[in-house]
Nucleic acid binder design. Sequence first.
DNA 1: CCTAACACTAGCAAGCTAACCGTTGACATA
DNA 2: TATGTCAACGGTTAGCTTGCTAGTGTTAGG
Lengths: 141, 141
Amino acid sequence: MRDQFPFAVARVTRRWRKMLDERLKDLGVTQARWSTMVYLQEGGEGLTQRELASLMAIENPTLVRLLDSLEQQGLIERRLCPNDRRARRLHLTDAGKDFMEELSARADVLRDEMLAGLSDAQIANALDVFNTIMENAEQQK
Amino acid sequence: MRDQFPFAVARVTRRWRKMLDERLKDLGVTQARWSTMVYLQEGGEGLTQRELASLMAIENPTLVRLLDSLEQQGLIERRLCPNDRRARRLHLTDAGKDFMEELSARADVLRDEMLAGLSDAQIANALDVFNTIMENAEQQK
DNA sequence: CCTAACACTAGCAAGCTAACCGTTGACATA
DNA sequence: TATGTCAACGGTTAGCTTGCTAGTGTTAGG
């Protein structure tokens, strides 16, 4: 039974990503790009790239390309950091903030549909499981 | 709280994949290639590519490349199907079967480490959540 | 002056869609 | 019965995105 777990998580992740990509397609934004904006907004603007990558639990090179596309679309800005000339501080543009409303609305709708029929207790338990796994992963190297 | 869910699943999936890839690296096999072999073994040999893709819940072109690499490594075989000249029937080679023991042993160790501290009830609940989500996803288009 | 840190580049793996080739099967019609 | 057409199907290719590691250049700081 436990052996099904890794396959099941992966399936759910793929499926969710696929459906969200489909629904955001006409806006020219993907699931990964949208998440990047969400994390940036939540983390508070002015984060450096390293901080954001760590918040998202992805590697820096992965983030670099996501930011490239978002910057090219005019949704975020990389500003020079006065204290540390190596670093860049990240900000949503006004267009980016406006965009977020539409994007988040669609993501919320999908989320409600995907989690339909599940109680708060079930979701909470799943989140506990995820947290424990991440702690276990952290512990080893 | 529910809004954390999609981010949390994705994080766990990425992390798990990363760790398994790391541990299988010296054998020249990745997480995705190993899963392919697992599904093939479980689904019973002689599956067609379409059947296996559907079992794995991935798209056909994705599977094609996984099979290309596995075939090149001599771990599986694509045999012609006598009834339908379009189709190929998939089989593990003897080398593939031998390999599976080592691969699965390592995957099992990782799984135990990742799920440490979690009760069967918690895991069962998480699997229920995953199943419900997949049903919800199925329902719409 | 040397090491560590930040962002970036290059290149691989694996997910996806769209478009293609050959085969199959059904169905209309000669 | 035989044949012509045509849609559907299995597998593949091409090309995009996003995950990763390894390696580079510049800057900071002991």
